[in-house]
Simulated scan of single mutants.
Amino acid sequence: MGLVKLKNIKVYAYHGCLVEEKKIGSDYRVDLKVKADLTTSAETDKLADTVDYVHLNFIVKEEMAIRSKLLEHVAERILVRILKEIPMVEKATIDVSKINPPIGGNVELVTITRTKKR
């Protein structure tokens, strides 16, 4: 077994329930961890035998570009696509964080975490 982690993927997106969030957008941070059997790729040194982190990043960027009211919703879409498009992934965990959320206080970020497995 093994893990592939993408940390601190920075995205500008338009998620949220407030009208202002639809118009001006916010900075987001995405952290992703996927579990897969990396034994073959460790032996063969072939990209085709592993989880391509470029593909993972592409999925995150595409799904973050689609507006959602809730972070849970965008996180679920990302996890569903990962499991659908990358069959060797057995489990994926994602943190989606809104940086400086408009919640009337001094809050650095708010994060939701979701996990999905086969």
Rank of each mutant, 00 (worst) to 15 (best):
Leu3Glu: 15
Leu3Gly: 01
Leu3Tyr: 15
Val4Phe: 09
Val4Lys: 01
Lys5Met: 08
Leu6Glu: 01
Asn8Gly: 12
Lys10Pro: 02
Val11Thr: 01
Val11Cys: 11
Ala13Trp: 03
Ala13Val: 05
Ala13Gln: 09
Tyr14Trp: 10
Gly16His: 08
Cys17Tyr: 14
Leu18Tyr: 13
Val19Cys: 01
Val19Ala: 14
Glu21Val: 10
Lys23Arg: 14
Ile24Glu: 13
Ile24Trp: 08
Ile24Cys: 11
Ile24Leu: 14
Gly25Leu: 10
Gly25Cys: 07
Ser26Lys: 14
Ser26Phe: 10
Asp27Pro: 00
Asp27Met: 09
Tyr28Thr: 02
Arg29Gly: 01
Arg29Leu: 09
Val30Gly: 03
Val30Arg: 02
Val30His: 08
Asp31Gln: 04
Leu32Tyr: 06
Leu32Gln: 03
Lys33Arg: 13
Val34Ile: 07
Val34Cys: 08
Ala36Gln: 03
Ala36His: 10
Asp37Leu: 05
Asp37Phe: 03
Leu38His: 05
Ala42His: 10
Glu43Gly: 03
Glu43Lys: 15
Thr44Glu: 08
Asp45Ile: 01
Asp45Glu: 13
Lys46Asn: 12
Lys46Asp: 15
Thr50Leu: 09
Val51Leu: 02
Val51Arg: 01
Val51Asp: 05
Asp52Tyr: 07
Tyr53Glu: 03
Tyr53Ile: 05
Val54Ala: 15
His55Ile: 15
Leu56Lys: 01
Leu56Thr: 04
Asn57Cys: 10
Asn57Gln: 13
Phe58Ala: 13
Phe58Leu: 12
Ile59Lys: 00
Ile59Gln: 01
Val60Tyr: 02
Val60Ala: 04
Lys61Ile: 14
Glu62Pro: 07
Glu62Ala: 09
Glu63Trp: 06
Met64Asp: 06
Ala65Glu: 14
Ile66Ala: 06
Arg67Leu: 12
Arg67Cys: 04
Ser68Phe: 13
Lys69Ala: 14
Leu70Asp: 09
Leu70Thr: 13
Leu71His: 03
Leu71Asn: 07
Glu72Ala: 06
Glu72Arg: 00
Val74Glu: 04
Glu76Arg: 06
Arg77Asn: 07
Val80Asn: 11
Val80Ala: 07
Arg81Gln: 14
Ile82Ala: 07
Ile82Cys: 05
Ile82Trp: 06
Leu83Asp: 09
Leu83Pro: 06
Leu83Tyr: 06
Ile86Phe: 12
Ile86Trp: 05
Pro87Thr: 00
Met88His: 05
Val89Tyr: 04
Val89Ile: 14
Lys91Ile: 00
Lys91His: 04
Ala92Glu: 01
Thr93Gly: 11
Thr93Pro: 07
Asp95Phe: 14
Val96Arg: 04
Ser97Gly: 01
Lys98Pro: 01
Ile99Leu: 12
Ile99Trp: 02
Ile99Pro: 02
Pro101Trp: 09
Pro102Val: 10
Pro102Gly: 11
Pro102Thr: 12
Pro102Asp: 08
Ile103Asn: 02
Ile103Gln: 00
Gly104Glu: 02
Asn106Lys: 15
Val107Ser: 03
Val107Lys: 04
Val107Pro: 06
Val107Ile: 15
Glu108Thr: 12
Glu108Val: 11
Glu108Gln: 13
Leu109Thr: 12
Leu109Glu: 15
Thr111Val: 03
Thr111Gly: 07
Thr111His: 01
Thr111Cys: 07
Ile112Cys: 12
Ile112Leu: 09
Thr115Lys: 02
Thr115Val: 05
Lys116Asp: 01
Lys117Phe: 13
Lys117Gln: 15
